[in-house]
Design a protein around this nucleic acid. Structure first.
Lengths: 241, 241
DNA sequence: CGTCTCAACCTGTCCGGACCAGTCAGTAAG
DNA sequence: CTTACTGACTGGTCCGGACAGGTTGAGACG
């Protein structure tokens, strides 16, 4: 329930509490949830704190409100089956490959201008730089460099990186990964890419730059990936509006 | 400014005030806006009301916040409308270019194996093959080859092609364009591409293969586009599911 | 000159409260 | 039976305040 001694903000705990009730069927679509004042009495929390939690859930599409009437559970959004934001691991599995990776380097560096811009940090703020060769069925698929703000994505180790970054971020750090913007362009492989991807001089690569945000808009990741052009194509669908 | 006698909520007036400043250039991207307390003093409004307005603007993508540092104007988002299925003409206009094209060839040919597969036709069925250099601000941007089933997209002429294919299909033929799948990969420019795009041997191109369907699922178009890598990147967003 | 400390700033979270405006059920009057 | 009123509920808007934790720059000290 609500633990006032928890480091997790009270409004956030209430959000999770209500979401859990919706997910497990305790609260059904179009059902009224207890009013703000009832929750305030129930949990001995101020109504403003309740309102903050409920406002967030309304913004996220879980609830809807009607002035004078109450707050109701929303029907489940149609899940956009269009390609979602997935990690490299998830993407390779989707394509039927066995994903893997070889760590090239892992360090904390002061963010340069480009990285600071992308992550909306001050220049020289410490960030993790993780450089990996990503494998599919044990063959190099991409050279990937990931930047994460060190004071946001805390406590990274090589072990965590060798497992799943997204899982660590979502489950251990309880950060809500939300959306990403990707820029896709063609390029000619540079020296390090040639070596690490085991391709010939003059080979093309598909360069994908991804900037990812948490639900609250905070950038948490910037990734540069150079994919072997002979092994990877990006596929997606779009609709006429 | 802020009119406390107005029926419009104060927090909403503040939102519009700040948005107006962003739109008219008074506030630039990454610039700090006055702090919550400064606005509170300025307008004699409670800090909570200020926070409500700013939170809404953060949620809408106009601002971003950094704890301990301030609230900043966000860069204008890449317009989400780029996400949809658009023609080259629409895409270039969206990016602020003047679109144009130079017809290279236009003929009816019997569909080869690859084209027949893509358009779900029998081999040798007649299709239009339209080859164009697409221009942006009068500079070659892409070499585009479009295939359309001749008995579905009827009556094509050079004049129609020089205007808008999508407009002709939707308005004259009353066909409902629905969705497309795109494959994006990196490649090295081939001979014809080198000449027509005015690039050097060994240059990379972004190769985009698009298969488009009508609302009833019928494929109506298959397009191969080779974009100059120095002038074009594909940008899109995706969300975590 | 480099380092450390501290004050003054910032946003984040939470409190308790007041009043406004919409909705609805119950009751009284015609 | 209909209409109007009232009270109790709802969410919406706003107030003034307190404390926590992050950031930054100025000043002191070695």
């Amino acid at each position: 329930m609500i633990d006032k001694n928890s480091p997790i903000p009270i409004y956030h705990q209430l959000e999770e509490f209500i979401k859990a009730q919706i997910d497990n069927g305790e609260l059904q679509a179009d059902e009224t949830i207890p009013s703000e004042r009832v929750y305030a009495d129930m949990f001995q929390i101020s109504r403003m704190t309740i309102r903050q939690a409920l406002t967030n859930l309304v913004n996220d599409g879980y609830l809807y409100r009607q002035k004078g009437k109450g707050t109701f559970v929303n029907k489940k959004k149609v899940e956009q089956r269009l390609q979602g934001l997935t990690s490299f691991t998830e993407d390779m599995r989707e394509r039927g490959f066995t994903p893997g990776s070889r760590l090239v380097s892992f360090e904390i560096i002061p963010a340069g201008r480009e990285i600071a811009d992308r992550l909306k940090l001050s220049e020289n703020t410490p960030v993790y730089e993780i450089k990996r060769v990503r494998l599919a069925d044990n063959v190099p698929m991409a050279l990937e460099t990931t930047y994460l703000p060190a004071n946001l994505v805390k406590g990274l180790t090589e072990e965590i990186i060798n497992q799943s970054l997204y899982q660590y971020i979502e489950e251990k750090l309880s950060l809500a990964i939300h959306e990403a913007t990707q820029e896709i362009e063609a390029s000619i492989a540079k020296d390090q890419e040639l070596r690490l991807l085991e391709i010939d001089k003059g080979s093309p690569v598909l360069l994908i730059l991804r900037s990812s945000n948490l639900k609250d808009g905070t950038p948490f990741e910037f990734v540069k990936s150079a994919y072997r052009a002979d092994r990877y194509k990006f596929v997606h669908t779009m609709q006429r509006s």
